[in-house]
Design a protein around this nucleic acid. Sequence first.
RNA 1: GCGCCCGUAGCUCAAGGGAUAGAGCAUCGGCCUUCUAAGCCGGGGGUUGCAGGUUCGAAUCCUGCCGGGCGCGCCA
Length: 585
Amino acid sequence: MADPRLLLAERLTAAVAAAFGPDFAGTDPMVRRSERADYQADLAMGLAKQLKRAPRQVAEAVVANLDVADVCERVEIAGPGFINLTLAKRFVEREAAALASDRTLGVPRAAKRERVVVDYSAPNVAKEMHVGHLRSTIIGDALARLLEAVGHEVIRQNHLGDWGTPFGMLIEHLVDLGGADARARSDLGELGDFYRAARVKFDGDPAFADRARRRVVQLQAGDAGTLALWQTLIDITKQHLADTYGKLGVQLVDADIRGESFYNAMLADVAGDLERRGIASINDGALCVFPPGFANRDGEPLPLIVRKQDGGYGYAATDLAALRFRTGTLHATRLLYVVGSPQAQHLAMVFAVAAIAGWLAPPVRAEHVAFGQVLGQDKKILKSRAGEVVRLVDLLDEAIERADAELAKRDVERGVARDAAERRALAPAIGIGAVKYADLANDRIKDYVFDWERMLAPEGRTGPYLQYAHARIRSIFRKAAEEGIAPPAAGTRIALAEPAERALGLELLGFGAAVLESAETLKPHRLAGYLYDLATAFTAFFESCPVLRAPDAAARDSRLALCALTADVLARGLDLLGIEAPERM
RNA sequence: GCGCCCGUAGCUCAAGGGAUAGAGCAUCGGCCUUCUAAGCCGGGGGUUGCAGGUUCGAAUCCUGCCGGGCGCGCCA
């Protein structure tokens, strides 16, 4: 059950070759969805230029050679040379039925299967996650799911910040609190408080700062006692992460965590290799690489500092080691870094240096999957009422609370009696889904305004709207069961008599293309947009086409099959975005 | 100063170089004895920041401005 677009493109390409010769077989037929027909092909105008003929003549020649008798019921040339294609109803019916028995729901495999590393989330040890981690985590999660859906092998990598100078102060603070035993007592309270307290002491107590600096040396020297303390902090953090990811419904697990410490043992080798090969050189006492095309404030070459003056390694070295590991050891052919756009220059430099060093050679490539910031209603970076960074757990809890309140309000309005426990069980899927959809529905490169009212409102283009459409379909099946009506059998014939039925059927056929496009462009908002369109097509159908009270049994079964397929596509599509689809709302 | 990103309806956002730039919110008007009204149907609302250029065709590509955000040598 090929996507109609692909099928039409094939036929059009053949028609172009037949009309103008094999030289033109590579012409993109430019098949798009159309407002005036089901699809339109926009190739005639461009072709006319090359052929030095009138566009409409070109379109006519293409249409004369076009064999779509089994696919289209109408082919028209309009305007300057648009070819408008209307699918035969029978074709849509047949394809929809085929889709219903296709496990993948029409999602095609990517042309080339690749091993893709997706680096996302990247929280820090002994520090709570905040809104800044929200986008990386949910965009990365959606991309990982999308890439797997089209057949790629995805390796999730959570680049945990678990190494570096802050650990001196963190470990010393832990010692002050009673060392590893402190963990038994309330897991050190709130991680955010723990980090803040350590920072305050470091800044205000010179003796503590000295201890902290000595502790860093011990840590890097591999002192067993220090490492045990360090491990305690790691363990506590992992627990915090597991809780947060669980609440967020994100697929990251402990096994995906490969923190900065993992690369520690490789840093000297990375630096030595670059230095030996003359790629890096000592400059002001630091080991630097000057990739071409990067300049500092004064227009002078900008270095990537591999090793600092004091002999220590910074994050550039770690990033280089991680990149080398991912291509050299994990044998990934594509590396995705789901990191905020402020890091663009740093990552570009890392990629440039890796290319020079030969760790990144075509067709293997690295891409910065950048994203904009989350803004408050004042259009500035989202802050809490107290003006502090918003903790991610707080944000998620508020989402759940608000969803619960929204449900309660709606129950009252509709006069529905539902016990609080059932409501509370439902609230996380809705609240978290609303947050995720609001984020993923925007083009990731842009900043977006975070607005509770908007994302959870009882109406509008939101996660709850999509979930509601899905729940309403499931409700039909519950009702059907009560009335003793069996769910549609496999291979049930789908008839698309009403305009709303036809529109829904056609929309369903586009799922595979939407997923593929979303995966290929690394833009989850394409899929988010498609799912909204699908939900809209369904609700229009729902309003005008009674299912259980359809005119006859054949129509009823056809509509049931259409409903089942729609519910499956909605649920699968939402799942690819990491959003749950509850059975009822 | 240099570099990257953004600028589309009152607000929040869509729109593979294609026809009359679309949704949601807000606003105005309709639709619940019928499968969930968190819904559906319809109306009004635009010089796509500005000015050039490329093209049969530009919100989209190029150049220059204007406005906003971010980054620019030892933090990550």
